[in-house]
Design a protein around this nucleic acid. Structure first.
Length: 1042
RNA sequence: GCCGGAGUGGCGGAAUCGGCAGACGCGCGGGAUUCAAAAUCCCGUUCUCGCAAGGGAGUGAGGGUUCAAGUCCCUCCUCCGGCACCA
């Protein structure tokens, strides 16, 4: 009895032994080591394939089952490509700097270097357990000083270069380019030599001969420095940032929650202007959009990037301040005697004016007031004494709120009148200037012209503060209909009063409106009918044009311009501006000409993208390699002084500081006294105390994998030319915008400076889906984890405590719900090959799908069934069914079909259906008494990318003495993938009636004949006339009979 | 609010160009094997009416185009993701 129950079959599928053995073999033989061009043993004739995973952040909790989803897929492709004859670069590393490590270190009081090392070891061990074919000799970690030496090197490139928007150059591939990052020394020498100059406001002037400019040598040292530093790609600027005094650091927007509090610790966060390192990513806005076209990326991701950059076209317009300007004799005339007037007025030189950006210059004459952001530099000057107290209070209150908080309550607009006026340059009328937080300093010019007749935000604001509203575009009938139906549920007094005017022409309407007033609900059905039929569309449109306030909202679409000033407009340069009757497109171009001719505006392109705030007041990051002199002098350290290592510090915690107007962040590095102070040429310098954000390392790590040991360059340029670009980049969609945008920007800088050979780093991008988990919801909607639930037969679930039945739902894996699956457990129970099969079989790679451990044994069974195709479990010898005879035609056909399906599916990353094809093959082969080696051996190669340990073991048992990793992928014969006979469907009037078998090459007539011959078909068309017969070769016959 | 993506059996999911809906796996039911069980192998499994032969319905809802619609068009609903006063 005991013997029977404990008997272990000698030759059972022992995945633990097999996986251990082959992982050791690969390591020992360096099976997956890949060489660079010029290295010994590198076959330069082979095509290359660079396949990259988004490297993980090594957290304290280890890998969860979501990480390997993408890694399994890339490993399958890597192994497949090797068998297809490619040199495959497939590396792995760790994104090991960052806030979570530091926070964890603070909580546990262990140095982040130590926890990071430990976590990386855990991750590496786990990753190896899956049998991934990484070249581990190329492993990198961003927190390794050998790595971040070059992160700092990249940063210095940006400090030491500027963006020349007008540079025209030819890219290595022959493309004509406009705009280029160039060494800052080139700018400096052009200025020193007098080839270029600067104007009064220190803007760069490139043709000094014909323009007013300042002589470089006449500028003070400080001014020269301002010009140069102001052009660097990495620069210091005072900008409004998320400042968390409690944590003593600036936070990124992602680190601030909806309530304006810090993600960690829930401390209040404020918008504060602080001096920060910035990277001039905005200079690349256009290229970041344009170059997306050449990428094989999912369209939604490209769209998200385009939206993030947020390109819009419109106009910049000058609104002269009313207390400084008047229109005299058809000319703008400045009333301020102290102002020296520029030779000619244009957008840039126009003094004493508010500058705005608008996408709808065609609506300029409808601008009845203006709004400036609370942070706008002109607020002070615009505010009259009587309003000063109110304005200051408003500005201070805004500053106390975080930006997110500010954008939270979109329902109620707030704002204060400054008392100041500006002149609408089209109508010549002075309009009031308000300050309100619905205008953001960070976009456009931080000031807007408000067109309440054509913009919903302005409309809302105008209604609340009772400002003038002018209709600017004739509404469409669709819009009228939509407004009317909106008013059936709610209508305000103002609107009813407005409609009253119409009842003069239509007495019926008067009665209806009186009824509406009594009901005090919306418009009734009958009222609508009266409005539509009695009053009519034309009058309704006109009514909006004359009385927009009555319609409860603006018309912001495109259409025909109305109410433009025409002859009564401002007579600057003896002309006026009539746009009436023009379409939006026509009106835009007409007004732009008008504005430009008068020096009060110009066409403009604007971007939502902002420059990248690059400093963090944190310990665990790359130190910024810059020295600050006492006189404000800034010196980037020399490249050959790199790396600038993080100082060893016992106490790396940030210091909390009370919020006050004069408190500044005190980064932990400030306490490394010896490290901070540097003597150079007899001068004392202080090191920059900031570190870089977590994104920095991941912006270029894919280059380091190419040549990780190089001590003098980011990577060897021959190797870079060989391997780049990354052919396939797989990772989560959560990085769709930030990481991928930052990396593309960084790459383009290196490209402009000649360090890399491709415009874009990642040719093809694939986003894997999220692995979710099950959770349960009770009747009250409360979500509970699986640990609190019992499953009753099949799919009934009840609470363990109460027996109350609960519904199974799909939720994110989270520690709180205790529904996190640990891959170590799955592997120890079923093995890595089963795990790989399961994750790939769950569904499409890019879809989110729930982990269901119940399904795992099915894939384990697949491994066992494959095992038994080759090995006799009783004897541990090769199965006696294996034969050297030629395969049966059926078996051979099954093999070739399988190869074809699997191969096509891998290319498309449809790994779930590739595995279904493997199942099909196993289902066909299993019942056969004889299995030819000529079928089994190629099949073992087919499963090798998916289940490499199992495949290697079987391959070896079949008598091969080297790894199969570089065996050629078995080809297939197209002729053997099609059957001689096919089953086709026969429909009568589109309804399935029968299935018949015909020869695969039957022509239409033969198929038709065979279909007609079938009893069931004959019965269905009996007594009817056949009108038409549709034949689809090899698929179906459809008989239309009536 | 705007922009994306997706809704198919009890569950995960298949389905080139519009051409047999539900491949494959899980679960479930039945059988073989076994003293018995596990494991294995075989058969069945969209729902519904019917003893059966056979009929009817069916891809989130409703319309439309077509000989033929999961697939194309229109309207709407739900879920997921992104952005969110961007002038």
């Amino acid at each position: 009895m005991a013997e029977a129950t404990t008997r272990i079959k000698l030759g059972r599928y022992d995945f633990t032994a097999i996986e251990t053995r082959w992982q050791a073999y690969w390591a020992e033989h360096q099976t997956f080591k890949v060489n660079n061009p010029g290295d010994f043993g590198q076959d330069g004739k082979k095509p290359k394939y660079y396949i990259l995973d988004m490297f993980p952040y090594p957290s304290g909790s280890g890998l969860h089952v979501g990480h390997p989803l993408g890694y399994c897929a890339t490993d399958i492709v890597s192994r497949f490509k090797r068998m297809r004859g490619y040199n495959v670069l497939h590396p792995m590393g760790f994104d090991s700097f960052g806030l979570p490590a530091e926070q964890y270190a603070i909580q546990t009081n262990v140095h982040p270097a130590e926890t990071t090392k430990k976590n990386i070891n855990t991750y590496r061990r786990q990753l190896k357990m899956f049998g991934f074919s990484y070249d581990w000799d190329r492993e990198v970690a961003t927190s390794d000083v050998r790595f971040y030496k070059f992160t700092q090197w990249c940063f210095l490139q940006m400090v030491n270069s500027w963006y020349d928007e007008q540079a025209t150059w030819t890219a290595p591939d022959g493309k004509a380019m406009v705009g280029q990052a160039r060494p800052i020394a080139e700018l400096e020498s052009a200025l020193v030599s007098g080839e270029w100059g600067v104007d009064e406001s220190l803007n760069l002037v490139r043709h000094v001969a014909d323009e007013h400019f300042c002589k470089w040598s006449d500028l003070t040292k400080a001014q020269q420095r301002e010009v140069i530093d102001g052009h660097r790609l990495a620069f210091i600027d005072e900008i409004s940032v998320n400042w968390c005094p409690e944590l003593g650091t600036v936070l990124s927007n992602e680190e601030v929650d909806n309530h304006g509090r810090s993600d960690r610790g829930s401390h209040p966060v404020f918008r504060r202007p602080l001096r920060q390192w910035m990277l001039r990513i905005t200079k690349y806005s256009e290229r970041l959009i344009d170059d997306l076209d050449e990428l094989d990326w999912p369209e939604p991701i490209k769209l998200m990037q385009r939206n993030w950059v947020g390109r819009s076209t419109g106009a910049e317009v000058v609104f002269p301040l009313a207390n400084k300007w008047e229109i005299k004799d058809g000319q703008w005339s400045c009333t301020d005697a102290a102002t020296t007037m520029p030779t000619s007025l244009n957008y840039d030189s126009f003094p004493h004016a508010i500058r705005v950006y608008t996408t709808r210059p065609d609506t300029l004459y409808g601008a009845t007031y203006m709004v400036v952001a609370p942070e706008h530099p002109l607020v002070e000057q615009l505010t009259i004494d009587a309003q000063r107290e109110q304005v200051s209070e408003y500005v201070a209150a805004t500053r106390r709120r975080s930006e997110l908080d500010r954008t939270m309550d979109t329902k109620e607009k707030t704002g204060v009148f400054t008392g100041g006026y500006a002149i609408n340059p089209v109508t010549g009328k002075p309009i009031p200037v308000w300050v309100a937080d619905y205008v953001l300093m960070g976009y456009g010019t931080g000031a807007i012209m408000a067109v309440p007749g054509g913009d919903s935000r302005d409309f809302e604001f105008a209604c609340k503060f009772d400002l003038e509203i002018i209709a600017v575009v004739q509404p469409t009938s669709d819009w009228i209909e939509q407004r009317l139906s909106a008013m059936t549920s709610k209508i305000d007094q103002q609107a009813l009063d407005g409609f009253n005017d119409l009842s003069n022409d239509c007495p019926q309407l008067g009665e209806e409106i009186a009824k509406c007033r009594q009901r005090s609900e919306g418009l009734g059905e009958k009222t609508l009918t009266v409005l539509r039929d009695g009053v009519g569309l034309t009058k309704l449109v006109n009514h909006f044009v004359n009385n927009p306030r009555a319609w409860g909202g603006p018309f912001s679409g495109e259409g025909v311009a109305v109410n433009s000033p025409g002859e009564s407009g401002v007579a600057v340069i003896a002309d006026s501006c009539g746009l009436n009757g023009k379409t939006t497109t026509e009106a835009k171009s007409a007004i732009l000409d008008w504005l430009e001719a008068r020096g009060v505006g110009r066409s403009a392109v604007n971007y939502r993208l902002r420059d990248w705030v690059f400093s963090r007041q944190k310990y665990w990051g790359e130190p910024i390699p810059v020295l600050h002199g006492e006189d404000g002098d800034m010196v980037a350290i020399e490249v050959d002084e790199l790396p600038l290592a993080l100082p060893e510090m016992e106490d790396f915690k940030p210091a909390p500081i009370a919020d006050g107007d004069d408190t500044v962040p005190m980064p932990p590095l400030g306490r490394a006294k010896e490290w901070v102070h540097v003597e150079r040429d007899g001068k004392t310098y202080r090191r920059d105390l900031n570190t870089m954000p977590q994104w920095a390392g991941s912006c270029w790590y894919y280059l380091r994998f190419i040549d990780p040991e190089n001590t003098t360059r980011i990577c060897d340029s021959e190797a870079e030319k060989y391997w780049m670009p990354v052919d396939l980049y797989v990772g989560g969609a959560e990085h769709a915008v930030l990481h991928l945008l930052y990396a593309r920007f960084w790459h383009k800088v290196l490209y402009d400076l000649g360090y890399v050979s491709t415009r874009e780093p990642f040719k093809k991008l694939f986003n894997q889906g999220m692995i979710q988990s099950f959770a349960f919801r009770d009747a009250r909607g409360l979500v509970v984890g699986p640990d609190k639930v019992d499953a009753l037969d099949g799919d009934k679930f009840v609470l363990k405590d109460s027996g109350e039945s609960v519904e199974r739902i799909v939720a994110k894996m989270s520690k709180g719900l205790k529904n996190v699956v640990n891959p170590d457990e799955i592997i120890s129970q079923y093995g890595a090959d089963t795990f790989r099969f399961y994750e790939m079989y769950m569904g499409p790679l890019d879809a989110s799908k729930p982990w269901n451990t119940r399904d795992v044994p099915g894939l384990h069974k697949l491994c066992q069934r494959i095992w038994r195709l080759v090995v006799d479990e009783e004897t541990d010898e090769l199965s006696t069914a294996l034969s050297d005879d030629a395969p049966t035609p059926e078996a051979l056909r099954a093999l070739h079909k399988t190869i074809k399906r699997v191969q096509a599916d891998i290319e498309l990353l449809k790994l779930n259906t590739a595995i279904a094809a493997i199942f099909d093959f196993v289902n066909i082969l299993t019942p056969l008494e004889k299995r030819s080696r000529a079928v089994i051996e190629p099949f073992v190669l087919v499963i090798a990318p998916f289940a490499p340990h199992l495949a290697e073991e079987l391959w070896s048992r079949l008598g091969h003495d080297t790894t199969l990793a570089y065996e050629p992928w078995p080809g297939y014969d197209e002729a053997l993938t099609v059957d001689d006979e096919v089953e086709i469907a026969v429909q009568v009037c589109g309804k399935m009636k029968a299935r018949i078998t015909v020869a695969a090459n039957s022509d239409d007539d033969a198929m038709k004949e065979a279909a007609m011959a079938d009893d069931r078909v004959a019965k269905a068309i009996a007594g009817k006339t056949v009108r038409k017969v549709i034949v689809v070769k090899g698929r179906l016959v459809n008989i239309v009979a009536t």
